[in-house]
Structure formats: C-alpha cells, structure tokens
Design a binder for these strands. Structure first.
Length: 452
RNA sequence: UCCUGAGUAGCUCAGCGGCAGAGCGGGUGGCUGUUAACCACUAGGUCGUAGGUUCGAACCCUACCUCAGGAGCCA
C-alpha cells in the first residue's frame, strides 16, 4: 500500500523518494512551476507539492484542477513557506483521473444543504472528511469501551418479526407481489420487519453471556422531519444481567464521558477544525462532559422544578405527561447546564418491558438528556418478574404468544437486568458540534430521501 | 403530518412593480515561493412550476413542488 499524506506529514526528517497519491484541493501556478495541494483523506491537512515546469507530466498541469486525482513522485523537503513543515519537490507528475469544470466542489465554502445534494462527493471536503474520520474512530471507541469492561458484542438480527413496542413505526419486509397480503405465503411465512431495536434479542444474550452490547443499524418508519431523526441510524444497545437502574445510569454516563474523552484525545486536528468552523464552544463542552458528573433527577422532581421555574412553556408541565422538547432543553441547557439523567417515569408513558418500581406508579426508566440535542440515551431496568411482566403485557394489549420466547426468559433463571439505547449519530452530533443528523451519517435516509 | 421561512448564474446572495446584478467558482491572458494567491478581460439566467392581478411581475395574489428550521414521535 502507498504511504499516506498523514504519514508523510509526520516524518521526522526529509526523504529522497516519496510517492503521493491524492486529490487536488487547489492549484496555484507560477510561470515556471505550480503548487499542487493534495489531500488523500488520511487526515485533514493537505500536502503541498511543488512541480517545476520541466518535470515529466507537467504538460498536463492544466488538467490537474480541483478534484482531479494525481500521483506525484519526488523528494520530501522542509518547506520554505510558513504554513507547512514539509512539502514535496516533484520529480514526476501523473494525472490519474481528471475532474473537469463541472466538478461541484469549489475551493470556497459550501452550505451543508448543497453538499447533501452531492452526498457522493461531500466526504472530499474538509468538514465531511473530518466528520467521517471522527465517526470511524468513535465507532472503534464504542467497541473499546465495552470490550474493556467485559461486554460481548452480539449481532442481533436486522430482519425480525418482533416489535420492540414503543420504539416506533416499522418498515415491512416482504417478497409478496404488490397488492398481496397473505403473510402465510410470504418469505418467512409471517409478517417481517426491519428491526427497530435489538433489545429483546439482546436480553436473551445478556441472560446467557452476562454483559452484551449490540451496535448496528436500526430502522424507524416514522415520518419525522427534524435535525435529529433518521429512518436508518446506528444504535448502541448494551444489556447487563444482574444490573439495576443505578448501574444502568452509571454505565450510560461513563460511556458518554468515555466517548467525549476519546474525541478530545484521538481526533485533535478534527476537533480544532470543528471548534473553529462549526461550534466555537465545542472543546469547552467536551471537557465539561468528560470531566464533571452529570445531574440526576427523578421524573417527579424534574416536573416539580419545571413547574416552579417561573417559565411559561408553550406546553404546560404536568405530572404523567411526557416531557416536551422545550422542557428537556430547559432542564439540560438552562437549569442544570450539563447533561442530566431523568429517571423513574410514570408507568403509563413507558413500554411494557420496563420494571415496575415499588411505588406501583413509576417504572425504572431513564433518559439521558444533553444540551443542544436532547435525548441521547433511553434505557431502563427490565421487568424480570414473570407475573408483573404478564400483567404489563395485558395492560398494553400485547399477546403473550407473540412474545413467548421473551417471556420464557422470566421462566428460566430470571435475573434483574438493565440496558439502554444510545443513538450513535446523536452522539456524533454531541462530539462534533454538527447540528443536523443528516450530516453525521454517510448517506442519510429520511422521508422521501433514499438516493445514493 | 402540522407550523414558519426560503427558492434569482455552477455556489453564496443582493434586487421587492419599470433594461437581470455582485462576490466566489469556470474560461482566456498576465504576474508572483504561492498557500481561501493576486491583476485584467470574458462566458454564464425559462428569476422553482402553473395560473391570476397589472399598461407592465423576479417583485403582488393563489395552488403545487422542493429545501430548511421548529413541533410531534424517539435514539
């Protein structure tokens, strides 16, 4: 494999024989030579190549325009210019793949809205290149966090017949011809869907391997048009046997802190760039998130605080109702001024699998709210008592037969256990400062959008 | 899905009832160890679509389409 620009730029000393392959970001011509700035995606920075007019291949310099792919051979030398440590003195230039004047990415800044229309090219920009390098490193950090703590990665199915109730509308998967709905003749001989959560399957493995997590694509057919919803997104779902709500909240908080720290330590160049051009408060916020304990509030107390806040909200705060976005934002952005975990919600507004608390009115649920984004984690201790679970299912009008294997977990060696879902894209929004979910996923799927 | 706003050159926008504009990008020429290079010249438009009002519409009205932001749902 070729040496990357990231590697060349990290060299300790000059080098006589280098080969650089990348895409031209900008070219500046002189009479007798040209400056070519190349980027190969390995890092944010470009490598400046100086190509003298006599160098083999210089006859095609006019075609080495922004976006063109080129290969440069030469010597790595200290750069006399102030802006960079190293540059390449070219001894040969090869145009690998040209890019004519219709190439959409100009040298100037573009809006995210325009770049979404050229999603196949946008990773070649500084912003999206940064975002997707960060995405990769954070994905790795997610696995590291769990693996360091004895969690096993479980690949839960993407095609599923089970509905993780409360998670949202599902995409149906079928091989039946249009218009037919005899599910007995369908591929799986029953209705099948794309998963909205690996939780139910995850619980089966938690009660076998102890600590597990899933990290994969998740699908919601909601007609949501917001900056923080996508129809296809990646969710991290740990599930822990012998764990209660307190342990659940501790793990979620530790994980968000771990990932904020990972961003600070492992993507310094991208962080600097994002802090400068996307969100000037980013670094400060990440230090804060990584360094200080989060706030924890029982739902009832949160409602009380909101009611006494003196603020007039568009929607009134009422015990027994879901907290509105404006309420969550006020709590995390203005009252606590830090991430806050709200727990012990009224049972009426939460799904059947959440564990009933001793008060008989609330369930051991928790939502982790962060400034600017809102809910980033949703989780709970699961109901492990067979009779209580069955009563919950009856109350939610769910048939026990269709969840028979889930109920079985409460028949055989049932244990207290808990877990949560962490939205990977929302986490990326938090650590990059990017305010729209469509800009932190390579190819966003939202209502009406499935191009690319 | 609901509410609000916006659609004018490749991109970002100005023009808000009387000849279609700028910056950037593109092309051509010049200049310079340059670095969002610089200077000059130049090409580039069905003003989102369809209707309406008016002597006259990019501009006012209606509908639709698209995009964005907010809401709901949630991760």
């Amino acid at each position: 494999m070729n040496t990357t620009i990231r590697e060349w730029l990290a060299m300790e000393s000059a080098c006589d024989a280098v080969v650089v392959q990348g895409w031209v970001r900008t070219r500046r011509d002189s009479k007798a030579f040209s400056f070519l700035e190349l980027n190969d995606g390995s890092c944010l920075r470009n490598l400046q190549c100086v190509v003298d007019a006599g160098v083999p291949g210089y006859d095609r310099i006019a075609e080495c325009t922004t976006g063109a792919a080129v290969r440069v051979e030469g010597r790595l030398v200290a750069s006399p210019g102030g802006a960079q440590k190293w540059e390449v003195r070219a001894t040969a230039l090869e145009l690998v793949g040209g890019a004519d004047e219709t190439f959409p990415l100009q040298k100037k800044g573009h809006t995210p809205e325009f770049l979404r229309t050229v999603a196949h090219l946008r990773p070649r920009t500084n912003l999206y290149g940064s975002i997707f390098r960060v995405r990769s490193r954070l994905s790795y950090a997610v696995h590291r966090f769990f693996q360091e703590r004895g969690f096993f990665h479980v690949h839960t199915p993407i095609l599923t017949a089970s509905d993780c109730e409360g998670a949202g509308e599902m995409f149906r998967v079928t091989t039946l011809p249009a218009g037919e709905d005899d599910f007995a003749k369908d591929f799986f001989a029953r209705q099948a869907f794309l998963t909205v959560s690996g939780q139910l399957e995850g619980e089966t493995f938690a009660t076998a391997l102890g600590r597990i997590y899933t990290f994969g694509p998740t699908f919601r057919a909601e007609n949501s048009n917001t900056t923080r919803h996508a129809a296809e997104f990646w969710m991290i779902e740990p599930e822990m046997a012998f764990c209660d709500l307190a342990g659940d909240m501790e793990t979620a908080e530790a994980q968000v802190k771990y990932l904020a720290r990972a961003m600070l330590e492992e993507s310094p160049e991208e962080l600097e760039f994002l802090n400068k051009f996307v969100d000037k408060g980013l670094r400060e916020r990440l230090e804060f998130v990584a360094g200080r304990p989060f706030e924890r509030l029982p739902y009832a107390e949160a409602v009380d605080i909101l009611q006494r806040s003196g603020r007039t909200f568009e929607y009134p705060v009422e015990y027994g109702q879901n907290l509105q976005s404006e309420h969550e934002r006020w709590l995390t952005e203005e009252h606590c001024r830090c991430p806050v975990t709200v727990f012990d919600y009224p049972k009426e507004i939460k799904p059947f699998y959440m564990r009933l608390n001793d008060d008989g009115r609330t369930v051991a649920a928790m939502d982790l709210l962060v400034p600017g984004i809102g809910e980033i984690v949703g989780g709970s201790q699961r109901e492990e008592r067979l009779d209580v679970l069955r009563a919950n299912m009856a109350r939610h009008h769910l048939s026990e037969e269709s969840y028979w294997w889930y109920v079985d977990l409460r028949r055989y060696g049932s244990v207290p256990h808990a877990g949560y879902g962490l939205g990977f894209e929302r986490l990326l929004m938090l650590v990059t400062g990017v305010s729209n979910i469509r800009d932190v996923i390579p190819f966003a799927r939202t209502p009406g959008h499935c191009e690319f």
